[in-house]
Design a protein around this nucleic acid. Structure first.
Length: 390
DNA sequence: CCACATGATTCTTG
DNA sequence: CAAGAATCATGTGG
């Protein structure tokens, strides 16, 4: 299931994808997972007051969230103060009922995990470092596509940096809001202390509660970010399977090499690099191509004879038309017609009556790279192919 | 829409 | 680890 989502490129909002291209604001990430909207999949349980059934902690969170949204909008001081007073009052109530809630912060392991992941993804780390690139290469380590796929690569990177910037903005915002809020609460408490005794302990507890609350919110932010990164990553990985045919030029270049080295179609690392450059593809693509080609050629030699002839001819003629003639080593510079001389050049001269086909001889002569396994029984190697190159 | 071609991935092997 | 083999998924032509 979960077959290959549409993901037809650049759809900013396909599926439930990171809707970040829209507003780089506070709500972009939250759209993925809004802190105030509870999800009931066990995923983030444990972040909020599940213990002792202190449901009101969650309510406080909601209220806080709302307040923060409100204060984000322009509200004049007086109103804001009023609201804050109210909040403080609620907090006081809350702190009464939470008397024996855990006072210390056990450094939630989940939070640590989130932090680690964000760091690994290069989201939380230092600015614009190689973090993103590292993450990508780690993600694709098995694939073996190094400096390539620059298309998806850059796409991924830009998306990741979007996430990162949103994350940082949000984090900063929360932090700022937290200190602001704390200050306000302190001020209010100070004011209250004129009319009633306010113990330092109470203040301390207040601050503690506020910080915990904000850190919960931050955790949720981190979680949302992680989710976004995961989605992005899985999509990126899926996208790798997207296939596009090589250009005609590329195929020609590869075929030329292949057929001119038919006796040993295993390009060295250098040759691969050269081919890759020449064909505008990557080294691993060259490897893939040769892997596929060898096996498919071997599987059904007959099918490739025409092609073989064609390229053998091309090579023999030293390149047909102004095509980029590769620096294929020893490009059979011998005469135009005597096609038998060169070692590598094999000419698929198909069976001229019982005679072994020339290409087979050629291959055999120079080391049979496919181990001369019994060609698949069914694959009648010398099918009719009467005509051949003129 | 189907069949085949083809690039990519995954698993096995030596 | 590279090559082979099987398989997947998309591209393409009829």
């Amino acid at each position: 299931m979960l077959q290959q989502q549409p993901l037809t490129g650049n759809g900013p909002s396909n599926g439930r994808g990171l809707g970040m291209s829209g507003h780089p604001g506070m709500h972009a990430l939250n759209s993925v997972h809004h802190p105030s909207q509870r999800r009931s999949d066990g995923g983030d349980s444990g972040l909020e007051g599940t213990e002792n059934g202190h449901e009101n902690r969650r309510d406080i969170g909601d209220i806080l969230q709302q307040i923060m949204t409100i204060t984000d909008q322009s509200l004049d001081e007086a109103q804001a103060k009023l609201v804050l007073t109210l909040i403080v009052f609620i907090f006081q109530l809350c702190s009464l009922s939470m008397r024996n809630a855990q006072e210390d912060e056990p450094q939630d392991p989940q939070l640590v995990r989130l932090d680690n992941m964000l760091l690994a993804e290069g989201v939380a780390g230092p600015e614009k470092g190689g973090g993103a690139a590292a993450a990508v290469s780690a993600a694709t380590s098995s694939g073996g596509m190094s400096p390539d796929s620059s298309l998806e690569h850059s796409d991924y990177k830009s998306k990741l940096s979007q996430i990162r910037s949103i994350y940082h903005t949000e984090l900063e915002k929360y932090e700022q809001a937290c200190t602001e809020f704390t200050t306000h609460v302190m001020n209010l408490l100070r004011e209250q202390s004129r009319t009633r005794p306010v113990t330092p302990r109470e203040i301390e507890r207040m601050v503690g509660i506020i910080h915990r609350k904000f850190s919960t919110i931050q955790t949720q932010l981190k979680q949302s970010t992680c989710e976004a990164v995961m989605i992005l990553r899985s999509r990126f990985l899926d996208a790798r399977r997207k296939r596009r045919n090589f250009s005609k030029q590329a195929t020609e270049g590869l075929n030329e090499y292949f057929y001119s080295h038919l006796s040993n179609p295993y390009p060295s690392e250098e040759a691969k690099e050269e081919l890759a450059k020449q064909c505008g593809i990557t080294v691993s693509q060259v490897s893939n191509w040769f892997g596929n080609k060898r096996i498919r050629y071997k599987k059904n030699i007959g099918k490739f004879q025409e092609e073989a002839n064609l390229y053998a001819m091309k090579t023999a003629l030293g390149g047909p038309q102004g095509n980029d003639s590769p620096h294929t080593p020893n490009s059979t510079g011998s005469g135009s017609f005597s096609l038998s001389g060169s070692a590598d050049l094999f000419l698929g001269v198909p069976p001229v009556n019982g005679e072994q086909s020339a290409y087979q001889m050629g291959v055999q002569a120079n080391g049979n790279w496919h181990g001369r396994n019994s060609p698949p029984s069914g694959a009648s190697p010398h099918s009719d192919h009467s005509e051949n190159s003129d």
